[in-house]
């Protein structure tokens, strides 16, 4: 169903009565997702410097408190209504859901946020500098990994729901109550310049595939790329103790930092910056595809745009692809 952007603002105002409303806001220096009023939220085609991942996997999350032999769980989060996740963000959330909730162990902290949040995706109209979703099989305009999907025509939105949660939310607001169920849509077939690493090569084969030190020599090792990446999901536990009460937190970490793999013995299996960069790239393009069948890079381009020295992951993946059989 096609609706105007004003109707969408009305819907967001309706949602904000019961939930914390999150959306992209122009802060003057950057665009970022934050708690916002319906009128502040951007409805143009610009893109934020960080993704929506912090609303599923916050930079710091208190897991539990331990006091006098008792473990107390907390911070059962109230759900947010998140507006404006781009298809690359939604596909990244699909990766994160697979990592955090499938297999032997499920992460309850991710899971409960995932269940509590209402996610409204908005398709892109145009690619931005550094974007490459089309090279990793992500459709710029649409993803079904959300509750409600809006395809942006510039003037208004074509609205569909993709989950029961989405249907209910739309149904509660009279102007959107007749919205139909969206079709799951397959992405366009991979293009000739698709970025993917051959499963035929062993991990060790990639380790020597290119001169990683040369290819990454200008990387400054700041780890900004992993913080603004929608799929980077590594974390560390930290404890803080106060008067006999211990809080345990789950905090973002990054494989780009030397301490990430530092052993208590002092040995560090990834001593060089090149080895750490290689890990980040292979994790996205080889290890997650091997383990979950999804590429852990959705082409959002944030690392490409955000890198202070212009490191471009596409170029390094291409170099590896050129030497693979």
């Amino acid at each position: 169903m096609a609706i105007s952007k004003d109707v969408m603002r009305g819907f967001l105002a309706h949602l904000s009565a019961g939930r914390t409303l999150i959306g992209p806001v122009d802060t003057g220096k950057v665009i970022e997702y934050r708690k916002a009023s319906p009128n502040e939220i951007l409805m143009d085609d610009r893109v934020s410097y960080k993704s929506i991942k912090e609303f599923y996997f916050p930079q710091v999350e208190r897991m539990f408190t331990f006091s006098e032999g008792e473990v107390q769980d907390h911070d059962n989060p109230a759900g947010c209504a998140i507006f404006g996740g781009k298809p690359c963000d939604l596909e990244a959330l699909r990766v994160m859901k697979a990592v955090f909730t499938t297999g032997k162990f499920a992460d309850p902290f991710f899971e409960r946020r995932f269940d509590a949040n209402l996610l409204i995706g908005v398709g892109c109209i145009a690619k931005k500098p550094g974007c490459f979703c089309d090279q990793v099989e992500v459709d710029m305009a649409f993803s079904d990994f959300c509750d409600i999907m809006l395809e942006d025509s510039g003037e208004g939105y074509n609205v569909e729901y993709l989950s029961e949660k989405g249907r209910q939310a739309l149904n509660e607001y009279p102007p959107t109550k007749d919205v139909a169920c969206g079709n799951t849509r397959k992405a366009d077939p991979p293009q000739a310049d698709a970025l993917a690493l051959s499963p035929a090569i062993t991990e060790a084969g990639f380790f020597e595939a290119i001169d990683w030190a040369k290819s990454t020599e200008t990387c400054q090792g700041c780890g900004l790329c992993s913080f603004i990446c929608p799929t980077c999901h590594c974390f560390d536990f930290r404890d803080s103790s106060e008067n006999g009460t211990v809080h345990r937190y789950k905090c973002w970490d990054s494989c780009i930092y030397p301490k990430f793999t530092l052993h208590a013995s002092g040995h560090n299996p990834r001593e060089s910056r090149a080895a750490r960069y290689r890990q980040r790239l292979l994790h996205k393009y080889r290890y997650v595809p091997d383990n979950f069948g999804l590429t852990a890079c959705t082409g959002c381009g944030r690392c490409v745009r955000g890198c202070p020295v212009g490191m471009d992951i596409r170029q390094v993946v291409k170099q590896v692809m050129e030497v693979q059989p």
Binding site: T27, K29, V30, K50, Q59, Q220, G221, C222, G223, L224, F227, S254, P308
Partner: peptide, 12 residues
């Protein structure tokens, strides 16, 4: 409050 403590300023 804007800082995400990524240390990119330090590295730069």
């Amino acid at each position: 409050d804007k800082c995400i403590l990524c240390f990119s300023c330090r590295q730069a």
